[in-house]
Write a protein that binds this DNA or RNA. Structure first.
Length: 125
DNA sequence: CCTCCCCCGCGTCAGCCCAT
DNA sequence: ATGGGCTGACGCGGGGGAGG
């Protein structure tokens, strides 16, 4: 079953965006940092711009224009959502590999600490 | 097999944020 | 103020493993 179609006010598009190496600093504070605002220019394939608004006349034409705008909006949002998910997965992968590196580093430091403790501890006898 | 459950990806909506 | 991009949240459907 599909959700009822509801009024919509927003739309999407997106462009190929690479995750920057230094993505840990968010421009907007608590915002997820895998998001990198990129210039967006490309239109999804198959999108055809309709007649200019000035050329609209009848209610039917207005309705068709509204429908066309909605479909365009949905198409752009669809693509934006895909791209957003791709970036998020990449970001998570990046975090996971960082965790792996830090775990190895932490283990080494613990070992080093134990060694130093052995060296520096006073003899008991 | 069949059923159940979990996971994943998708499409859509709502709301936030930024640019104009 | 408005338009438009980005993303969290939601619900759906499909794939696949586990248990009967």
């Amino acid at each position: 079953m599909q959700k009822p179609i509801m009024a919509v006010t927003r739309d999407e598009t997106d462009e190929e965006t690479e995750l920057a190496p230094s993505h840990m600093a968010a421009a907007t504070g608590d915002m997820p940092t895998y998001q990198i605002r990129a210039p967006t220019t490309a239109l999804p394939q198959g999108v055809v711009m309709a007649a200019s608004p000035g050329s609209l006349h009848s209610p039917q034409q207005l309705a068709e224009e509204a429908t066309r705008k909605r479909e365009l909006r949905l198409m752009k949002n669809r693509e934006a959502a895909k791209e957003c998910r791709r970036r998020k997965k990449e970001y998570v992968k990046c975090l996971e590999s960082r965790v792996a590196v830090l775990e190895v580093q932490n283990k080494k430091l613990i070992e080093e600490l134990e060694t130093l403790k052995d060296i520096c501890s006073p003899k008991t006898d």
